[in-house]
């Protein structure tokens, strides 16, 4: 266990290093740098090149990376080209809404998906299993923005039951704001997760140790909770880490539709205004979050079923 955790942590550190290089190089490769973007209309080429020297943009890529990385480690993500404020402030002001949205979604998704998966898995190919499978298959084929547009049309515009957009104030103070966004995010994640839990349950139920335990007369409830669930949860947890990607995409879309001032809104704004430092900073923070999520998922899986191997 300790060696696994150690190995996995080393891998995570390597990933972090490569990732920061990647984010830096990707943004450095973009056509047009900070000096071009701000000043081509008002300054002469001569002034632009002087500014470039001032910003350190004429330095070789490697030394620029070292500078940038040093700043990042000290918690400085640079300054926004548009607002002129530090990127860290943008990260701080937008992280709350996204975190609330994500955690609220997970709090509903995980229990629901596990319950559905076990219900389906214990009734393999039964009527209920097939019914839920068809519904989840169909639901997972609908893009989340289509669901969002339709839900807003019905529940906000037509019926007027729920607010269509964020109207200021904290998300926590008025949970009713969260109902539609979370409903949208539920759709695909529950489908993906519950299918994995279902598959895991079926595999576990057919495993020899479960068959043997059943023969020995272990009560069904205990069998499911103690012997089947931990094994069934492994593909679920792994999928959950991968769902992070789907979920993040969903959160981006949901924030855009409901005008929630979170990470995604900041990111899309940054892309629209070509604010490279903001995009760089937000990308780095989100990518690190994704890495840590994967790390946590792998460690948890190893805890549940200690035979999981790291390197093949």
């Amino acid at each position: 266990m300790r060696t696994y955790a150690g190995q996995r942590a080393v891998l995570a550190v390597v990933q972090l290093g490569v990732l920061s290089v990647l984010v830096f190089v990707l943004t450095a490769l973009l056509p047009g740098d900070a000096a071009d973007m701000r000043f081509t209309e008002t300054l002469t080429p001569d002034q632009v090149s002087r500014l470039r020297a001032e910003l350190g943009l004429d330095q070789p890529l490697v030394s620029r990376f070292v500078d940038w990385f040093g700043d990042v480690v000290r918690g400085d993500l640079g300054t926004s080209l548009i607002s002129g404020g530090p990127v860290v402030d943008i990260v701080k002001s937008s992280v709350g809404a996204t975190l609330v949205l994500t955690l609220a979604t997970l709090a509903v998704v995980v229990p629901l998906a596990v319950a559905l998966g076990i219900v389906m898995g214990t009734r393999e190919n039964g009527r209920l299993d097939r019914a839920i499978t068809s519904v989840t298959l169909a639901l997972s084929a609908i893009p989340d923005f289509v669901i969002a547009v339709l839900l807003v049309a019905v529940f906000s515009l037509k019926l007027g039951w729920l607010p269509a957009t964020w109207i200021g104030g904290s998300l926590l103070a008025s949970p009713v704001l969260l109902v539609l966004p979370v409903a949208v995010l539920l759709g695909r994640t529950v489908c993906l997760l519950s299918r994995q839990v279902r598959a895991g349950t079926i595999t576990a139920l057919h495993a020899e140790y479960v068959v043997q335990a059943r023969r020995l007369g272990v009560p069904r409830r205990r069998l499911l909770l103690r012997h089947v669930l931990p094994n069934a949860a492994v593909p679920g947890v792994q999928e959950l880490a991968r769902t992070g990607d789907t979920l993040l995409g969903g959160v981006l879309v949901v924030e855009a539709i409901f005008a929630i001032p979170g990470f995604a809104t900041a990111l899309v704004d940054g892309v629209e205004t070509r604010d490279v430092p903001v995009v760089q900073g937000l990308t780095l923070v989100l990518a690190v979050a994704a890495l840590l999520l994967n790390l946590a998922a792998d460690l948890l899986c190893n805890r549940l079923v200690p035979r999981t191997e790291l390197l093949r």
């Binding site: 891998l11 390597v14 990933q15 490569v18 990732l19 990647l22 984010v23 990707l26 943004t27 490769l29 973009l30 056509p31 047009g32 880490a241 992070g244 990607d245 993040l248 995409g249 981006l252 990111l267 899309v268 940054g270 892309v271 070509r274 490279v276 995009v279 760089q280 990308t283 989100l286 990518a287 994704a290 890495l291 999520l293 994967n294």
Partner: peptide, 23 residues
């Protein structure tokens, strides 16, 4: 191995970075 590092990168992030440069 290099691909293992790329695996957990959220796809919309990669695309947003590309979208900044090549709108």
């Amino acid at each position: 191995r290099p691909l293992d590092v790329l695996l957990p990168l959220p796809s919309l992030l990669v695309i947003s970075v590309v979208a900044v440069g090549w709108r």
